[in-house]
Amino acid sequence: MSENLNIFVGLAMGLNLVALGSSRLTSVIRAAAVQGVLLGVLPLLMEEFHWMILVVAVLTMLVKGGLIPSLLNRAVKSANIDRDLIPLVGYVPSLLLGATGTLAAVAVAQRLPLLPAHAHTLLVPGALASVFTGLVLLIGRVKAITQVCGYLILENGIYLFGLLLLHSTPLIVEGGILLDLTVAVFIIGIIVDRIRTEFDTLDTHKLNMLRE
């Protein structure tokens, strides 16, 4: 079981690098979506079957893999943009940064005091790496869409970490947290859409009317 888990998490970590390295918006969106679906499967692998877990997992996969990507893709299409052209942190540097971050995450996770059950999984390094990747995307990219993807990846990382507590957190709390996160991303998607109509762009360079 732990092997399967590690494969999934490892894939997710790879997707982090994909998201960091690609300039095409659609591939970043796809990377985030696939990562979301992969993570949605994880609780099914970790727990004995429970209908609530199934519901949560399916919902996660639907929203992260279907709803949000389609929302973002629609925005990309209607804004008629393709790439995040001049990012604040370039693709190669961010890829290097991401790789370093992933390695560092593995190294840090080995230092951290973990329970024996978690010591040999990639859950903690995966979580840290995703959080790091999410922050890099949030800080380094200028297109609103890429930033939303960064936020998604950041959340995926936190979700991964949350899986450590899957046994002890009541499902209703888990469900509430997921619902909140989903709604948050959904609302961000809506705001992105509104920004596109108001500003006629998704370039956040234009989004600095509000300043001192």
Binding site: L135, L138, A144, Q147, Y151, L154, A184, I187, I188, I191, V192, R194, I195, E198, F199, L207, N208, M209, L210
Partner: peptide, 15 residues
Amino acid sequence: RAYEATWKYLLVGGT
């Protein structure tokens, strides 16, 4: 302007 503010509120606050 309001949308820009909301965007920043969501992303900074969200992070």
